[in-house]
Write a protein that binds this DNA or RNA. Sequence first.
DNA 1: GATAAGGGTTCCAGTCACGGGAAGGTCAAG
DNA 2: CTTGACCTTCCCGTGACTGGAACCCTTATC
Lengths: 134, 134
Amino acid sequence: MNINEVAKAAGLPAKTIRYYEEIGLIRPLRGGNGYRAFRESDMHKLSFIARARGLGFSIEECRKLLALYDDKGRASADVKALAEGHLVQIAEKIRELRAMEATLQGLVHACAGDHRPDCPILTGLADAGDACCA
Amino acid sequence: MNINEVAKAAGLPAKTIRYYEEIGLIRPLRGGNGYRAFRESDMHKLSFIARARGLGFSIEECRKLLALYDDKGRASADVKALAEGHLVQIAEKIRELRAMEATLQGLVHACAGDHRPDCPILTGLADAGDACCA
DNA sequence: GATAAGGGTTCCAGTCACGGGAAGGTCAAG
DNA sequence: CTTGACCTTCCCGTGACTGGAACCCTTATC
C-alpha cells in the first residue's frame, strides 16, 4: 500500500504518517522506487495511534502503548496504569477549563455589551478578583 | 522598575516579559545602561495580560483586549464578543475532553489490571468502537 | 517519443508561547 | 578590586505537526 491509501484508511494526513516514521513510531518497508510500502501491520499500528491520539495520549504515550501492544507478555496492569495516568491529566485539564469558564462567564454576564465603553470584563482583567462574581 | 521586579509583581517569568516586548505587547522604556525601565502602566498591562492568559486567551486575543483596554472610546459590545467567542472555544474543548474521558474510563473500567496480558484498552484502541462501553 | 497529471520523495521553514543556556555588560557591597 | 547578583542579546529546543518548494516515478494519452 502507498502512503495515501493508508492515510485514507487510517484517517491521518500523509504528512503525519511521514512524521510518525521519522520519529520511529512505524517502520514501513521501501519499494525499489523509493516509495514507502505499508504492510497490514503498519496500517493497524497507524489506526491504533490515530485512536490513541484521539483519546489525547501524547506521542510518547502512544509509543509506550504500541510497545505494550507488541509485547505479548505484557501485564494489563501496565496498560491500565498508563491509561489511568492519562485520565488524571484529562480530569485536571477539565477542571482548569471549567474554572476559566466560570470566571469568564461571570465577567461576561456582568457586561452590558452595548455601545458604551464601561466594561466589567476589562476592569476585571485589570483589577483582578474584583468586578467578577462567578 | 527592572525586569525582575515587574516579573514578581505580575507573576510572570522575566523571559516571558522579554518575549512580550519582542512581539510588541508592551513597550517599556530603556535606561542609559540598556536595562528595560518599566513604568506603572507597563506593569498594569503585564498584570492584565497575565490574567487574560490565565483565562485561556491567546496572545493575539490578549493583544486585542489590550487595544480595547487602551481605547477609551471602545464599545463594551466588542469586548463581550471577544469574550463570548473565547467561551465557545472553552466549552468546545471541555466537550472534547469529556468525550475522551468517558471513552477512556469505559476502557479502563473493563481492564482487569493484573499480571495477565489480556487488555480491553489495547484491543479497544486496536479494533475501534469495540470493547468500549462508555 | 513527448507530455501532462497525479502519485511519490526529501528538506526547510513556520506554528504557539515560551524555556534553557551561553557569552558578555552593569551595578552595589565589601 | 573583586565578587556576585542582576541585566542584555542571541540561538536552539519544545510538541506535533503543516505548508511549500523542488524534484523523481508512473500511467495514460497524443
